[in-house]
C-alpha cells in the first residue's frame, strides 16, 4: 500500500513539475511581418507621485522590454485606458509575459490592468 502511494505521489509530482515547467517556459514566438498587436490597459495608483499618464508611461517602459519588436508610447483614450501597440504582433508566450508584467506588482504604488489585447494581420 505504501509503495503504491509512493508511486502515485512520484507520478503526480513528476507530471506536475513537467506541466509547470511547460507552462512557465519561455519560448520565442513566430514572427509575422506586417502584423501588430494593440494593448489597452488602465492604471490604478495610490499616493503615486505623478499623473496616471506618467504612471502608465513608467509601467510601459518597464514592461515593453518583455516583448520584441517596435512599440509605441501609451496614448490616453477617452475611457481612461491607455493604448500601446507592438509590431510585429506578439505571440502566445509574448502575450503571457507582457500581461504578467503589466498586471503584476511591477511598480510600487502602480497597479496595471489590461483591458483588451487585439492582434491585426
Amino acid at each position: 500500500m505504501k509503495a503504491i502511494a509512493f508511486a502515485v505521489m512520484i507520478a503526480v509530482g513528476g507530471v506536475g513539475v513537467s506541466s509547470l515547467a511547460d507552462l512557465t517556459q519561455n519560448r520565442p514566438d513566430p514572427v509575422v511581418d506586417g502584423t501588430s498587436t494593440t494593448i489597452a490597459f488602465d492604471v490604478g495608483t495610490r499616493r503615486y507621485n505623478g499623473t496616471d499618464l506618467q504612471a502608465a508611461q513608467a509601467l510601459w517602459a518597464v514592461c515593453a522590454a518583455t516583448v520584441s519588436g517596435d512599440t509605441t508610447a501609451p496614448a490616453a483614450g477617452p475611457d481612461g485606458a491607455f493604448t500601446v501597440s507592438v509590431s510585429p504582433a506578439i505571440g502566445t508566450n509574448g502575450r503571457k509575459r507582457l500581461l504578467g508584467c503589466l498586471q503584476d506588482s511591477t511598480l510600487d504604488r502602480v497597479q496595471g490592468h489590461v483591458v483588451s489585447v487585439a492582434s491585426s494581420d
Binding site: L20, L23, T24, K96, R97, L99, G100, C101, Q103, D104, S105, T106
Partner: peptide, 15 residues
C-alpha cells in the same frame, strides 16, 4: 504560487 507562476507574475508568486 503556481497560478502566478503560470501568469508570469513573479512578484505575486514570490509573495
Amino acid at each position: 504560487t503556481f497560478v502566478y507562476l503560470y501568469r508570469w507574475e513573479w512578484n505575486r508568486a514570490l509573495m
